[in-house]
């Protein structure tokens, strides 16, 4: 529309054919520039892949932008010589436990926030917003002490509980957003037909909220999968590490096995990134509904 107006105006001034060509050239240049920017933005992804495949050409100057040979040696090595499989399993366990736990709790709290307007739900809403402002390190230092006292330190279940607590506020807020979009009339109809209020929630509203439930489950799974800081603090022994922590162990004082590090990065990042790109659309509308309005 805008470019149409633009070209329509210039058309009056210059000859029609010339200005059409000018407009085309300008939009082609803009398009090329956009592509160039996109290429620069995703270059780190490309470099991660290339470096994970090029164990022989890695340490060369100038660096080879297009690898001369491709080898999967690094992938083989990280699974045979390093504990990547153990860390991957731990990560999957923690992320699954986190997301199941988080979703179940968030469904109920999100429903209450969406359907009950009162002093208590209002206070809880403020509680959630406030929790997003707290400095994580000030929480983690006492949490470390508390976990040691409770025997949760260095356990995967402890880590999953801590992860869930950090994700819960956002998960609840997202869930509330999804419930807000389901009309309340259906529940009221079900109650007239003899359903209890809880029954109306679980049997009528919840099935309709399944897309939202999937997004919240995926969101908490990804966040639990990616998490590094709590895992670094609350887990001590190598056999209990998650992959995000294990990844940093490839860096030693004097040398880094970059091909292995990048191969492990691919293994670690790919499932989370793919998942994230699928649900990203729903996340943005949920997370920005407060920030962008009319």
């Amino acid at each position: 529309m805008r470019s149409f107006v633009n070209s329509a105006r210039t058309m009056g001034a210059v000859s029609a054919a010339g200005s059409a060509r000018l407009a085309f050239l300008r939009s082609a240049a803009a398009f090329a520039f956009t592509l160039l920017c996109a290429g620069l933005v995703i270059f780190p992804y490309y470099w991660m892949f290339v470096s994970s495949l090029g164990s022989s050409s890695l340490f060369e100057w100038p660096p080879r932008i297009i690898p001369s040979s491709i080898s999967f040696k690094a992938y083989e090595k990280i699974f045979t010589e390093r504990a990547v499989l153990t860390w991957l399993t731990n990560t999957a366990v923690v992320a699954s436990a986190t997301s199941i736990f988080c979703t179940i709790v968030a469904i109920n709290a999100g429903y209450a926030l969406s359907r009950f307007r009162g002093k208590m739900t209002g206070a809880f809403g403020i509680f959630i917003l406030f929790s997003q402002m707290l400095p994580a390190t000030l929480i983690v230092v006492p949490l470390y002490v508390i976990f040691r006292q409770l025997g949760l330190y260095n356990t995967l279940i402890g880590l999953a509980i801590a992860d869930a607590a950090f994700i819960l506020p956002l998960a609840t807020w997202l869930m509330k957003g999804f419930f807000d979009r389901i009309p309340i009339d259906l529940e009221e109809q079900a109650q007239i037909d003899g359903c209890s209020r809880m029954g109306a929630f679980y049997r009528v509203t919840l099935p309709l909220a399944i897309p939202g439930l999937v997004v919240v489950t995926a969101f908490s799974f990804i966040t639990g999968w990616d998490e590094f800081f709590l895992a670094r603090t609350l887990i001590a022994t190598q056999s209990n590490w998650v992959l995000s922590v294990g990844l940093t162990s490839f860096e030693s004082q004097y040398s880094v096995a970059w091909d292995e590090m990048m191969a492990a990065s691919v293994v670690f990042a790919l499932p989370a990134a793919a998942f994230f790109l699928v649900i990203q659309r729903y996340l943005v509308s949920g997370l920005t509904s407060g920030a962008v309005k009319g």
């Binding site: 920017c37 996109a38 933005v41 995703i42 780190p44 992804y45 991660m48 999968w225 990616d226 590094f228 995000s244 990844l247 940093t248 990065s265 670690f268 990042a269 989370a272 990134a273 793919a274 994230f276 790109l277 990203q280």
Partner: peptide, 11 residues
């Protein structure tokens, strides 16, 4: 353009 946001911070 969104892809960087999808990658874990550590990676």
């Amino acid at each position: 353009f969104i892809m960087p946001w999808a990658i874990p911070e550590v990676v």
